[in-house]
């Protein structure tokens, strides 16, 4: 067992967990934040994407112990009270989901890519969005409305 401490969604948390605990297990089973999903458990699908120290990573392929001390944001940490994050709002407005299983990972990847592109000044084109979504699999939508949602959010966040 190892004592793991992190800041998750602005809250300091600490738990004793076995050394082989994955970050996604820590988040879902120890912290009971079940917005982060496990789809494939083999690093392909991206339903488990969270932000660790500002970077989007796959929490099913990261040990909790290896990010001890980190600052983590999950999908539950994006909204400001009842006000949705612009990316969440855009997914709602553009029907960017059907069953919704992949959506937490899509939204975490989307917020990360928008932040990276806006920081570098590079244009987040439709082609760039599709390329950036290589690590997120959706089996319902055919991706079109997900891409539209991200374009919409990126435009609104650029003007914000």
């Amino acid at each position: 067992m190892t004592k793991i401490s992190m800041t998750v969604n602005d809250k300091a948390v600490s738990r004793d967990v076995p050394d082989n605990t994955l970050l996604v297990e820590f988040i879902r089973e120890n912290l009971r934040l079940t917005g982060t999903h496990v789809g494939c458990d083999t690093s392909q699908c991206g339903a488990c994407v969270v932000h660790v120290d500002g970077k989007a990573i796959k929490s099913c392929t990261t040990l909790a112990a290896s990010v001890d001390g980190a600052t983590v944001t999950t999908v539950e940490g994006l909204a400001n009270g009842k006000e949705l994050h612009p990316v969440q709002q855009a997914f709602k407005d553009n029907h960017g989901l059907q069953c919704g299983f992949c959506t937490p990972g899509m939204i975490m990847s989307a917020t990360d890519m928008i932040a990276r592109y806006q920081a570098s000044g590079e244009e987040l084109t439709e082609a760039a969005i599709r390329h950036e979504l290589e690590g997120n699999i959706c089996r319902c939508t055919g991706y079109h409305n997900i891409v539209k949602s991200i374009q919409d959010a990126a435009a609104k966040m650029a003007n914000a």
Partner: peptide, 9 residues
């Protein structure tokens, strides 16, 4: 290499 989340780690 891989995808963005893989490249971050």
């Amino acid at each position: 290499i891989g995808d963005p989340a893989v490249r971050a780690r």
